[in-house]
Amino acid sequence: MCVVEVKGARKLMAACATPVSDGMEVLTESDRVINARREILRLLIANHDLRCLTCERNGDCRLQDYCYRYKVEDTPYKGEVIEYPIDTNNPFFIRDYSKCIRCGKCVTVCAEINGAYVYDFMHRGFETKVTSAYDDTLQETTCTFCGMCVNVCPVAALVEKSTLWAGRPWEIKKVTTTCPYCGVGCQLKLKVKDNRIIGVAADRSGPNLGDLCSKGQFGWDYVHSPDRLTDPLVKRNGKFIKVSWDEALNYVAARFKDILNEWGGRAFAGLSSAKCTNEENYLFQKFMRSILQTNNIDHCARL
């Protein structure tokens, strides 16, 4: 698709691989270029699962975008269409190779960014398929489930399981935020539908330049865990009882005051959190220092 016309060149050139040189004249949308792109698109859709109606990428699909842009509505090539079974074996995403356009982006990101070298082209000619070695499930490969292949896939060949039937692309809100796991501080986009996170998309603005690991990409679902604490708890007779916020905070405040009056600030210690925000950590130490009168504040910086 990236072919362009270079004045003086015999054939069209791949823009992605041709270095520019002095005085080079490049036509990016000449008739010759457009016709070549249209032909390529006709070829791509001739061997593509065109069930766009319920496709997860409908409306967010590069193949659709380009077909629309270059007005390719149909293909004259009605021939063999290769259908592959969908691989649903890993916990995170499906591999639907009937929708693969063999662009090789997943091959590149896996080899050049992650270094896992899970994907490559297999077979030759028309039967060329982008897949793992021996078509194995990903658990049997060196895959680390960073999910970057899913994020670079321009079509619906690789789709997060969590987004399946979870919403149309235009209904999904994307919120850029910072990953809650390690200290790299990757930026990512939470995909939100109906007040639920349904997946993660790449964001190129942070130190990660769009790259992620398995935790950032797939480690978010604890947010919706049924184990989440929902109400303040107070232990009575060795059992936790749900109480109101007022009751809980009043009780804590009263106990804090008592201990402060009886023993002074030295009797207090506080552990703040490397998981909480700067604002929260700031307030926490301010609370410990200015209200509970202690410098006994630490967190797991050393752990």
Partner: peptide, 12 residues
């Protein structure tokens, strides 16, 4: 961790 640096910066 994601915000060890920040927790230190904040004086925790």
């Amino acid at each position: 961790q994601n915000n060890v640096q920040g927790a230190c910066d904040m004086g925790c």
